[in-house]
Design a protein around this nucleic acid. Structure first.
Lengths: 329, 329
DNA sequence: GGGGTCGATGCAATCCTTTGCAGGAGTTGT
DNA sequence: ACAACTCCTGCAAAGGATTGCATCGACCCC
């Protein structure tokens, strides 16, 4: 049904090799010939068979993207960025969702690895050991996790948290709580470190509420601990959890921001829509996706060029209604 | 690097054909031989090269999924369902996002069609004409759109809207507004029809606010029209828009549900988290994704078996805080 | 004018798997 | 004991594109 390279060759009066070259290495073929080939290809609606090409080149023209949970609005944005950039480079993207399960993550990488040229792991939860092993057979780029000298795209959590803490301090807060995400998440650890550093530099008290699932319910669950701790402000691992906090605080009759100021991280769409609107550390999510694809493609072209490259993307505090002057009790 | 079928053959002391058969048509090969082959394959970590297989069978083992906007929480849920079901059947899923652009949609189908065995179009916006043309070269399943006798998965919008209207009527509402989604969306038209039918059957007045972008901002934009229309209740095309309505109504000092009751459709996670929580028509989104894959795989196996199959999934009203007794002015 | 160079093109092998066909071994029936 | 089967396995072709190598003509320069 679909035209093959041979038919184009016949139509253009050349050999298949010439057609192939006219399309993939145009400078190797005479101008007039190339023109003729291109017209013939166009006339027949020819597009190379990717399976056949992949068979001989060993490349598939596909990328894989693995995320822990698509229903967390952070990830669809990254996916969009990956998609857009990949499409520009004529790559297609396999998407897989692990449901926050580190074991599923490893399994998916193994399965997907055979069908792609490279993989982007977004917020991977798998243990270091497993990931190290994967890197031996697979071209990987990590988003939201640093790991050895693997190429990675991360956000400047330290700066984001610093801005958030500075903001709280300016509002007179002295005690701040930290509501962490999954224990296995690198971002959780990184942000927690940043919290420790920033609060200690600012001379503020830090209350660590612990680790919670990165869902609305996780924030809900953390809220009571936060209230009991007596802090006047709280920073959550991500916006979804911060919204959970907001919800439970309201239910408990705690006024935000009057009694407690709340700050999230990610700047998901919904954070602008809550009431009060959520003050948050804004991350350029789509850009992270695009940067990851950039890195991956560079890595595929010349494996050594970007080894050990770490892109760090900016984080910027966005002040909205959920933070205010500290209560004075 | 990766083992080929020949190596397995040598290892097992048989020919490549036998290995192939042992793996894909086990009943054609002697028990003992098969056992030997399987062990050899296992020892070498053999997995068939999909490109080579695809080259000869003409099948890729891939599915494509096209959605209009991943950042609308409705779609990630569908994607999850598609993923899960596809993975069970050992298919991988290409995902593409059209940014609500019907032209991009057609383009993506064309591109993706070559790399997959079949495509799932989720809430497709493209004009009928174009879609009809696509069906000639491509195996398609539609979600959220009926089209000729193409296999499709849709929700029982009529029932969902009927329940919503009955609920409003029971609360004493006489006038209800409808805030529509994109003009090109089949769901918008279907739900609008359902609104006409249900309100007329119930003897209620219907105010059609028009078509709006299916985003939070669309709901915001519609809110003032709704207020001005004097209705006591409003149903929005989806939850995201309903949340936009909620937000703008609050800004305008209109109390929900006291002054106006608001109902959404989809039951996205966020709808439970707004304040007041959103009354909504709940849709089984993941199930829609799974059903679409079911249909598509059946279609690939025996093209005639499910031609003209339409799966209709239930819609169920979920009452929360955003609806209440009609004001009496 | 002949040897050398260069640019453009074709030939043929190759990637890995699947599958139609044929053949060999063993079994059954007569 | 032979024909007719059955069951299992191997041979070889096929699928479509890429690419190293060879070829061929043209052109240049001495």
């Amino acid at each position: 049904m679909r035209a093959t390279i041979r038919e184009v060759a016949r139509e253009a009066g050349v050999s298949a090799s010439t057609v192939s070259r006219a399309l993939s290495t145009p400078e190797m073929v005479n101008d007039a010939t190339r023109e003729r080939v291109l017209r013939a290809a166009d006339r027949l609606g020819y597009a190379p068979n990717r399976a056949a090409r992949g068979l001989i080149t060993g490349r598939t023209g596909n990328l894989g993207l693995i995320v822990p949970d698509l229903t967390n609005p952070f990830f669809p944005s990254v996916v969009k960025g990956v998609q857009a950039k990949a499409r520009e480079a004529d790559y297609a993207v396999f998407l897989a969702d692990t449901d926050e399960d580190p074991a599923a993550e490893i399994g998916l990488v193994r399965v997907l690895a055979k069908q792609v040229d490279g993989l982007i792991l977004c917020s991977p939860r798998a243990p270091e050991e497993e990931i190290r092993e994967l890197t031996e057979h697979t071209t990987l780029v990590m988003v939201n996790r640093r790991f050895g000298n693997l190429p990675s795209v991360v956000f400047d959590n330290a700066e984001g948290v610093r801005q958030a803490i500075a903001h709280l301090q300016a509002l007179g807060h002295q005690r701040v709580a930290w509501v962490g995400g999954p224990r296995t998440s690198w971002s959780t650890r990184d942000r927690m470190r940043a919290m420790r550093a920033a609060t200690s530099a600012a001379g503020m008290d830090l209350y660590v509420a612990g680790h919670f699932p990165p869902y609305f319910e996780g924030g809900v669950a953390a809220a009571d601990l936060v209230i009991a701790s007596g802090v006047t402000s709280v920073i959550a691992y991500n916006d979804v959890m911060a919204l959970g906090l907001l919800s439970r605080l309201r239910d408990r009759g705690v006024d935000v921001p009057h009694d407690i100021s709340v700050i999230g991280i990610d700047n998901i769409q919904m954070s602008a829509m809550s009431s009060p609107a959520l003050t948050t550390v804004s991350l350029v999510k789509e850009q992270a996706g695009r940067a990851a694809v950039d890195l991956l493609l560079a890595l595929l072209l010349q494996p050594d060029s970007v080894r050990n490259t770490r892109r760090e993307l900016p984080a910027q505090l966005l002040v909205r209604g959920s933070t205010g002057v500290a209560r004075t009790t």
